[in-house]
């Protein structure tokens, strides 16, 4: 295993005439273009335009000074890696190298630069996600000292009409006032991934919420983001599984025409079974990995 505090690949990369420069010198459109080129041959490419890149940076607290673009000896951008920073923690994301410019262990050089940047910002941990099946990336992260934390699911539900459920229909959920959503989120009990943390949701905005409480003591709430075309960022807290099903039922009954995408559901979370019962499909899996910098 390489010691992440010894940036050997980064030094060799620079000695070979290449550079690692902060992403703050690039426009969002340029960063999106470099990222899209780098991910063109990935299992799940997920391209971005300028607007999506900007939203990504804002929603997930990406440090543009801590993130880097790799430049080769011909002064061409050949890869990118981004660093999110939050209160002593950090997150590596959007890592990629343009296929026909992959050499000099560029991916490792970018990673070492991001690790050093996280350390400079006093982060005690770095987390990241790698798509299951991307073995070269996973091997690199393990070489740098990252260990597997858990497996996460990206799931979707196409818009369709739910079969009416009289039991659920008899329970009237109460909308959570916008001003109360921050307080409600603060009471969540799950362990979210970076992009599903409260800060990500609050940065993203457009949050809505519902809560239920029954006479026999069952309770629950759901908070989610509603964008013009999609529902996403679901957070549920509940006393019983049927309450979670009822809350999801209400959301999809309220917005029957909206597509839904939920990222990073823990594969061992009982909520995954509940999502399946409401019509969700697994799209792909990610492995969450963590590097302890203490």
């Amino acid at each position: 295993m390489s010691n992440p505090r010894q940036p050997t690949a980064r030094l060799k990369f620079i000695d070979a005439g290449n550079q690692l420069v902060p992403t703050s010198g690039y426009t969002y459109a340029e960063l999106a273009e470099i990222y899209n080129q780098a991910r063109v041959d990935y299992i799940v490419p997920m391209p971005m335009n300028s607007k999506r890149m900007q939203e990504y940076v804002v929603h997930y607290d990406i440090s543009l000074n801590g993130s880097v673009v790799a430049i080769n000896e011909d002064s061409l951008p050949c890869g990118v890696g981004m660093l999110g920073l939050r209160e002593g923690r950090s997150w590596i994301t959007r890592l990629g190298v343009i296929p026909d410019r992959r050499k000099h262990h560029m991916g490792q050089a970018i990673m070492e630069s991001l690790i050093e940047s996280a350390q400079n910002h006093r982060a005690k941990t770095i987390q990241l996600e790698v798509i299951v099946g991307n073995d070269p990336a996973r091997n690199l992260f393990e070489k740098l000292g990252f260990i597997t934390a858990r497996e996460l699911l990206v799931i979707r539900r196409p818009p369709n009409t739910l079969t009416p459920n009289l039991a659920y229909d008899s329970i009237a959920p109460i909308p959570i006032a916008h001003g109360d959503i921050r307080t409600v989120l603060a009471s969540r009990t799950d362990t979210p991934s970076w992009i599903e943390e409260n800060q990500s949701l609050l940065n993203a905005g457009n949050l809505h919420g519902l809560r239920v409480a029954t006479d026999d003591g069952a309770w629950g709430w759901i908070v989610f983001q509603r964008s013009p075309f999609q529902l996403t960022h679901f957070v549920l807290n509940y006393s019983d599984d049927w309450v979670a099903r009822a809350l999801l039922y209400y959301v999809h009954k309220e917005y029957p025409l909206q597509d839904t995408k939920i990222e990073n559901v823990d594969v061992h979370d009982s909520l995954w079974q509940i999502y399946q019962q409401i019509g969700y499909l697994e799209i792909f899996r990610r492995t969450e990995m963590i590097l302890d910098l203490k």
Binding site: A32, N36, I43, V44, M48, R52, R156, P158, F229, K261
Partner: peptide, 29 residues
């Protein structure tokens, strides 16, 4: 890069006059 392909498909399908046109997913999944 802007809106997921799945969401676009859903939006097309919601138009009654386009509900039945052939849509083919083109993907590396």
């Amino acid at each position: 890069p802007d809106i997921d392909g799945q969401t676009i498909i859903a939006l097309i399908r919601q138009q009654p006059e386009l509900a039945n046109i052939p849509i083919i997913a083109f993907t590396a999944f």
